[in-house]
Amino acid sequence: MKAGLFVTCLVDQFFPGVAWASVRLLEKAGASVCFDPRQTCCGQPAYNSGFWPEARDVGRSLFDLFPDTDYIVVPSGSCAAMMRRHLFQLHSQAGMERIAAFARRVVELTDFLTRICGRDDFESSFVARAAYHDSCHALRDLQIRDAPRRLLAKVRGLEMVELACADQCCGFGGLFSVKYPEISASMGRDKLRCLRETGAEILVSSDVSCLMHLDGMMRKEGLKIRTLHIAEVLAGSEAS
C-alpha cells in the first residue's frame, strides 16, 4: 500500500520530528511512504479567518499531489478535516468530482493506522505518565475518539491518565488565539489546570497546533510538562 505523507506546513517548519515519527509508523504498518515536495499548506489558516480567495489559491495545487498513492496521510486532525470536509466550500460546483476524489483519499494518521492498516500495537515503549488531549477537529469534525486512545494503551511503560476536560478546546483556534488572546489564554489555563491535576509528565495530542499553544503557555509560566505529538510517542523515538 502506498501512503503519501502530507506533513502540514507547521510540522515541516517547526516539528520535523513528528513527520519522521509518522514515516516510521507508516513503514512499520507496512505502507510504502512517499513525500510530494510540491505540498505547502492546506489553506486552513486563511479559510478559517475568512480569507477564502487566498485559501482557494493555496489549496488549488493540493489536487495534483500524490497522483499515484491510495491514501494521503496527515498527522493533524485539523488539516485532515480541512482537506476531507471543508475544501469543497471553496470551489464552484464544477470541480466537485475532483475534490471529492481527493478528499476521500485524505486520512488522519491515527485513523489510518487503526482503521486502514488495522493495527494498534506498534511494540513501542515510552516510560511516562501521560494525558491525552483531543484535538477538536479530530474529535468533532472527523469523529476520531477511540483510535488515539487504543494506540496509546498499547505503548509499553506508558501510564495513561484521563484528562477531565480532554474534549474541551485548548483555546488555540488559529486567528482566534491572537485576535482574542485573553480569552484564548484563559481557555488554555483551564486546560492546564486539568492537566496539572492528573499528575501527568507528558501531554499527548494528535495536533501540533494545540500543543504549540499549550507548550508556549507552559514555557511562559515555567510549567514543566512536556508536550508530544502522538506519533512521537507511538514511534517510541523518545523512549526513556
Binding site: 517547526f14 520535523p16 515536495p37 491572537v178 504549540m212 508556549g216 503557555m217
Partner: peptide, 22 residues
C-alpha cells in the same frame, strides 16, 4: 504576533525543514 507572545512563547523553528531532511 504580540497577541501570541502576550501569553505564550513562540515555538523554536527547526534548523532545517522536514523537506530538506527528506
Amino acid at each position: 504576533l504580540s497577541g501570541w507572545t502576550m501569553f505564550r512563547e513562540l515555538p523554536p523553528l527547526a534548523p532545517e525543514p522536514f523537506r530538506r531532511q527528506w
